[in-house]
Amino acid sequence: MTIVKAAAVQISPVLHSRAGTVAKVVEKIRELGRKGVQFAVFPETVVPYYPYFSFVQPPYAMAKEHLRLMEEAVTVPSADTDAIGAAAREAGMVVSIGVNERDGGSLYNTQLLFDADGTLIQRRRKITPTYHERMVWGQGDGSGLRAVDSAVGRIGQLACWEHYQPLARYALIADGEQIHAAMFPGAFGGPLFAGQMEVAIRQHALESAAFVVNATAWLDADQQARLAKDTGAPVGAFSRGFLTAVVDPEGSIVGEPLTSGEGEVIADLDLALIDRRKRLMDAGGHYSRPEFLSLQIDRTPTAPLIDRGTRTRTRPGHLLDEHTPEA
């Protein structure tokens, strides 16, 4: 496939409702499918919603909101992931989406990647939650720092400030990603946050020679007012910092980015542009000088329990158990 029609989706969650947000996402996938979209990226932890409360509330005050998020978080697999997969299959679309994942008593910032046949082909967790997020989410591991083959090409995923980690990005660059799914929460930080986001995604496109499809979430005025009431924060804390955009391998923004409101940026990705860029500078190949500059990565999935009696590695947070002989 040479041309991929891609959509970066700026969408509002249905606050405090997993079911409501999943239904909204499913309907958006169907709508994009009718427009011929083959690949779509949704915002960071849009299901059920980003933990905005953790940005404005001190730890001692966030118990109520934290518990509410736990109750509405997504289990993988579940009827919720089945519904998103079914919508992807119906639309014939590859879908990247951010969710709050619940695994036992823990929450994780998780990116899910569904192939065009609805199969869940990657579930990765943000390796280090940022600042206030550490009060909400656990840490991921290196197993998700890889690109994955899909119906539209080889896809890598990172969330938010993971784009500020050059080695995490290089893991995907060296793994040959062609399309990069980037997602941010939006809603705070103002023009500075949006400007930094633009720098990050354009730089990654330049270094990777990949297309970057970046999605941020949107909060309307009623949602901002509701969050302000629930957390005691000013409304203005939730009303700024959005940039939903597509970037080509030359680092140029394709079309007009979205900085307000719900909607999507749709663009045709000509994958032939990747070779035209890499001919000049392939950061994972002829330009890399691996004899003295290289990345060492441990992609071993972590787990709190390894059952040596059955010689089975228990892998919560991953798709399959792995039968591994004892060392």
Rank of each mutant, 00 (worst) to 15 (best):
V4W: 05
V4R: 09
A6C: 09
V9H: 07
P13N: 08
P13I: 11
H16W: 15
A23P: 05
R30S: 13
Q38P: 04
V41Q: 02
V41W: 00
F42V: 02
E44S: 12
E44P: 05
V46W: 03
V46T: 01
V47M: 06
Y49H: 12
Y52G: 07
S54W: 02
M62Q: 14
A63D: 15
H66N: 13
H66Q: 11
L69A: 02
A73I: 06
T75D: 13
P77T: 05
A79G: 13
D80I: 01
D82Y: 02
D82R: 07
E90D: 10
G98S: 00
G104H: 05
N109S: 14
Q111V: 08
L112P: 00
D115I: 07
I121L: 03
Q122V: 06
R123D: 02
P129M: 05
Y131E: 05
E133Y: 06
M135L: 13
W137R: 03
Q139C: 13
G142F: 11
L145K: 09
R146W: 06
A151Q: 09
G153A: 10
I155H: 01
G156Q: 03
A159E: 07
C160E: 06
W161C: 10
P166M: 10
L167S: 12
A168V: 13
A168K: 10
Y170L: 12
A171L: 04
A171R: 04
D175M: 08
D175R: 03
P185L: 09
G186F: 00
G186Q: 03
G189N: 00
L192M: 11
G195F: 06
Q196Y: 12
E198P: 00
E198K: 13
Q203C: 12
A205V: 04
A205Y: 02
S208Q: 03
A210D: 02
N214G: 05
D220G: 13
Q223E: 11
Q223G: 04
A228S: 14
G232C: 06
P234A: 09
F242L: 14
F242Y: 15
V246D: 06
I253T: 11
V254F: 04
G261Y: 12
A267C: 04
D268E: 15
L269Y: 01
R276H: 01
K278R: 15
K278Y: 04
L280Y: 12
G284F: 00
G284D: 05
G285V: 09
P290H: 06
L293H: 12
I297V: 11
I297N: 02
R299D: 03
P301C: 01
P301F: 02
A303I: 07
I306F: 13
D307A: 12
D307C: 08
T310L: 11
T314D: 11
R315M: 10
G317H: 04
H318P: 07
A327H: 14
